[in-house]
Design a protein around this nucleic acid. Sequence first.
DNA 1: AAACATTCCTGCACGC
DNA 2: TGCGTGCAGGAATGTT
Length: 284
Amino acid sequence: MPELPEVESLRRILARSATGLTIVSAKVLEPRLRRKVSHDFEAAIAGRRIEALARRAKYLILQLAGGDALLVHLGMSGSLTHRPGKAGGPAFADHDESLDPAHDHVEFRLDDGSRIVYNDPRRFGLLKLVPAGALDSTVELRGLGPEPLGKAFSAEYLALKARGRRVAIKNLLMDQRIVAGIGNIYAAEILFRAAVRPTRRSGRLSRAEIGRIAAATPSILREAIGKRGTTFRSYRDSRGQPGGFSSRLRVYGREGEPCYTCSTPIRNVIVGQRASFFCPQCQK
DNA sequence: AAACATTCCTGCACGC
DNA sequence: TGCGTGCAGGAATGTT
């Protein structure tokens, strides 16, 4: 569940369920993620209280007592689930249907008997403890563009970044240095709403087209957050619930199916090695 | 069984 | 020639 709306949904859920709880202990079952989880991770995490939940781009940030932050990225296939403790039974009684022991890589036991589990079949994700004050300068977050839901992301900004660029607009939107948090699904949906083909060269777009893209971006993302993100296949949020935005997708994954607006079959072309869905009638 | 929601790295082409 | 930048391509990996 990796793009911005999914991470933001996760942040909101965890903010309600986990803020104020203390991580009694952490257990790393499989350290080989995108980068190896450091060997002192367990000791460094133990005893920390979760003060707040934040997000930057597709990164979830657990603000810990003392100012350090736990940076979490879900990669392609990661999930973070908060599982209640079993009343009356051992906290780790494993009859939970949602349990996936083969890919549960890190477990955090909390002081109310619940636990937060990081699961990631493809192990492209990341868990990293960042010292207080070093968050903005850490390699993962340094160099990220503005948040698409913030004031800094505007038509003027996008026009500035698109000027003279030959890259396809879809690749520009997915470039985390330009704007943070947009991936393949939402780039496709944003461009459909903006009526611009994903293959268009960024520098060739009119001011009106740039304006529509800049307007569609927060609009699509907010709508997806409201639906708790998009669920593909077996993906679930931190309470095990599927996201509700899948049924709202206008083009993503709909190759050959009729456009909801004009009935023209949706097409799929490869742009920058990624599937790119669009309506050839509605998007120019 | 080909496709895949992620990031990161390499190497080529081009311009100054 | 040398350097920086833009861009394409591929790798990492397991599931469906």
